[in-house]
Design a protein around this nucleic acid. Structure first.
Lengths: 203, 203
DNA sequence: AAAAGCTTATGACACATGTCATAAGCTACA
DNA sequence: TGTAGCTTATGACATGTGTCATAAGCTTTT
């Protein structure tokens, strides 16, 4: 019997997945939760064979959670499958770094998900077809730590002076970071830079 | 027998819904499609009792589709239920204008969806609890047509001069529109104005 | 030890952005 | 027939933004 925990914040999808997985004779859904914190608690207490994790969840996202599971000595045999809407290279990279066993898009059929669960139990790794392509086309995030930070703040609508107050930098420095971020992302304005960075999953 | 068409672009959720609705004795899923255009075609040919429509779909969104269904003489008896992730007042307003029969969030349990299908068939209207609240707290979109247009273009990263080329206006005019949009949205920069407008579903 | 790259900073320049006052033409509504 | 609101426009002003040259201190890698 494959024991599974489902962490997905969208109730309709979570309920539907749980309902359908219950029809599989070899699968048992031991818990279904809607946020990262609750997921972490139930994973520790239940020690499931497989965790299905959404990325965007309250309190703790699926990638951070995957990282925590991988570095916990008691959870070495627990397989991790990320299930997400987003085909962002940045997300995929983080998932690979966290050594997840599967990375599926919500745009896959459920049968593929079920099949994938059985595969990761056997020690195989699974990845959505669409994503296998982005793996090869993968672009490294060209932004430095500070550039990323500054751009993230710019995204939330802060002006240069507000950003420099936030990070205890001078205006000039912040403008320099934004300038180089804009150039690295081949954009012309901060807005465009923000758009591409979001789209690539870099901020 | 209640005949249903499901239009939802996320395959996993669409498949799950279809699978679960098939267990209901009084419900028949006559078609499931992944974009607005395909939905429109199948709705015309199948004449279903109920359409479940996602909002964000390729080719035609669910709100435009709802509008088309409501204005088609042959589809007067077809009930429309919007099922979406987003609790944006702007979306809800458009849905109400299109006289939809139901507006549910994907954050509801499936049982509620099934129950809602039976209710709209009886002529009732259904709306998610969370949304009933926003209905009362509803804020009117304070932006004029032009202001909305200009802000939408700004959102995609265009500079003032690019926007004025796009709309055949002078730079000064575009700046005035942005300025008044920023003030109406109680923001300080175009970026902040864009953020709040997106969040309210106004652009 | 040298090279490369990140972090921080300054000053200067050109241009973009946001505000304000003002105004003319238009539509819709009372 | 006003009056209100939208659309369009101009000029002026202050401030914000993006680029460039330059540089010092720091860590990491070769």
């Amino acid at each position: 019997m494959i024991r599974i925990v489902i962490a997905e914040d969208q109730q309709m999808l979570r309920g539907a997945l749980t309902a359908l997985l219950k029809f599989e004779a070899d699968i048992e859904v031991v818990a279904e939760v809607s946020d990262g914190q609750a997921a972490w608690e139930v994973i520790q207490s239940e020690q499931p064979d497989v965790c299905l994790l959404d990325i965007e969840m309250p309190f703790m996202n699926g990638l951070e959670l995957a990282e925590k599971i991988r570095t916990d000595a008691l959870l070495q045999s627990c397989k991790v499958v990320i299930v997400t809407t987003f085909a962002r290279p940045g997300y995929l990279q983080k998932a690979i770094d966290a050594k997840v066993d599967g990375y599926l898009l919500k745009d896959e059929p459920i049968d593929y998900l079920i099949e994938s669960i059985r595969k990761v139990i056997k020690g195989e790794r699974v990845i959505s077809m669409d994503l296998a392509a982005t793996l090869f086309m993968k672009e490294e995030n060209p932004l430095s730590l500070r550039e990323t930070e500054v751009l993230r703040l710019a995204k939330s609508g802060l002006t240069t002076s507000e950003i420099c107050n936030e990070l205890f930098l001078t205006k000039g420095t912040v403008r320099n970071y934004l300038s180089s971020a804009i150039q690295k992302l081949e954009s012309e304005t901060r807005q465009q830079a923000i758009n591409t960075a979001v789209q690539k999953g870099w901020i």
